[in-house]
């Protein structure tokens, strides 16, 4: 039996919380990673990788920067 057959890779698609478009990620994301919806351009933060979940990323705050 193929050991990988019973452990499918985690889904790399998630629904945009803003516009409901399907977002497909190119690689396994990390918690806290920022992804952008190609449809509505919203910035989303990955809040869980298994299951994959995203939330609207926080707006820019006063002391944010480089």
């Amino acid at each position: 039996m193929n050991p990988t057959a019973s452990t499918p890779p985690p889904a790399l698609s998630v629904e945009c919380t803003e516009c409901a478009a399907s977002i497909t990620l190119e690689r396994q994301p990390l918690c806290g990673e920022i992804v952008r919806c190609r449809e509505c351009r919203a910035e989303l933060e990955v809040t869980s990788v298994s299951p994959l979940r995203v939330e609207l990323a926080p707006e820019v705050e006063e002391d944010w920067g480089e």
């Binding site: 990390l30 918690c31 806290g32 990673e33 920022i34 933060e45 990955v46 990323a57």
Partner: peptide, 12 residues
């Protein structure tokens, strides 16, 4: 980090 942007991914 507080967010993982492209820069943080590249550093990792």
């Amino acid at each position: 980090h507080s967010r993982i942007r492209v820069e943080e991914r590249l550093l990792l």
